[in-house]
């Protein structure tokens, strides 16, 4: 016998007059291998075509479909109903502006984060179209890629107590991103320059170390290590800033 699933889904369309926030229930019979991508599309196609949610690659690569699933931020496309009880509660990811129902505006948030971090390679060297590429150790390339795998899904922000209390906190995704640039030999920024960007309460010193981010990251990024690494580096830089003779 297939299970009869109950989906309790947050509904609110800010664009529709008369819409008010609340939970609505939908029922669906479970089929083999059912995941939330298929389930939510079925509900939309057969029960309520106005239901808003975000999927894009539906393969766990693009990060579009993060939502709170039975209390935990996760990628919906990767979540099988078999892992969940019969009652499935879906809420939009907190910390981002609501577009409608389960859809939130992660694009504006991450664009702003990347602007604040100045998250691009800073170098005075011009690209020489006639020269071969600058050599790099493969291991360094792989270490950068390890951190570059962040898909900006926002799960770490949704799971972060600081981010929920202060909207200007940049969160683990940002600290991981800046750690990626610190690792990259092509980026010529000094620790002092990195400190200007993340050596604040909006940056690394706002982190309370609860590490919800690390627990929920769908890409298993080493966020705990990176937060500690950036904090240590920026802590030393803070000392250096006030005690010019201090050496690491």
């Amino acid at each position: 016998m297939n299970r009869k699933l109950t989906f309790s889904i947050f509904r609110y369309n800010p664009q529709e007059t008369g819409s008010s926030p609340g939970m609505r229930e939908f029922r669906l019979e479970e089929t083999e291998n059912l995941n939330l991508f298929v389930a939510l599309n079925l509900i939309r196609e057969t029960q309520d075509p106005s239901l808003q949610f975000d999927f894009c690659c539906r393969a766990g690569i693009c990060g579009a479909c993060a939502m709170v699933i039975n209390g935990r931020p996760r990628l919906a496309c990767r979540t099988k109903t078999a892992e969940l009880p019969e009652k499935i509660v879906l809420m939009p990811l907190p910390g981002f502006r609501l577009v409608g129902d389960l859809s939130v505006d992660t694009g504006a948030w991450f664009r702003s984060m990347n602007e604040r971090l100045r998250s691009w390679i800073h170098t005075d060297e011009n690209f020489d179209p006639d020269a071969p590429e600058v050599v790099m150790d493969n291991q360094v390339a792989e270490e950068i890629y390890e951190l570059d795998r962040c898909i900006e899904c926002g799960c770490c922000i949704g799971a972060c107590a600081t981010a929920q209390m202060r909207s200007d906190f940049m969160g683990a995704a940002a600290m991981n991103r800046i750690a990626r640039f610190m690792l990259d030999p092509r980026d010529k920024r000094t620790n002092r320059e990195f400190f200007e960007i993340v050596g604040t309460d909006q940056g690394i010193f706002g982190c309370m170390g609860l590490l919800g981010c690390h627990d929920v990251c769908p890409k298993n990024l080493p966020l705990q290590d990176q937060l500690a690494h950036v904090r240590r580096k920026m802590g030393r830089q803070a000392l250096k800033n006030i005690l010019p003779w201090y050496k690491n």
Partner: peptide, 18 residues
């Protein structure tokens, strides 16, 4: 070849020859 080297200059962590 030029386009890929420019992407490298911009920061893509291409795997390298070992």
């Amino acid at each position: 070849p030029l386009a890929i080297r420019q992407m490298d200059h911009w920061g893509v962590p291409w795997n390298r020859v070992v």
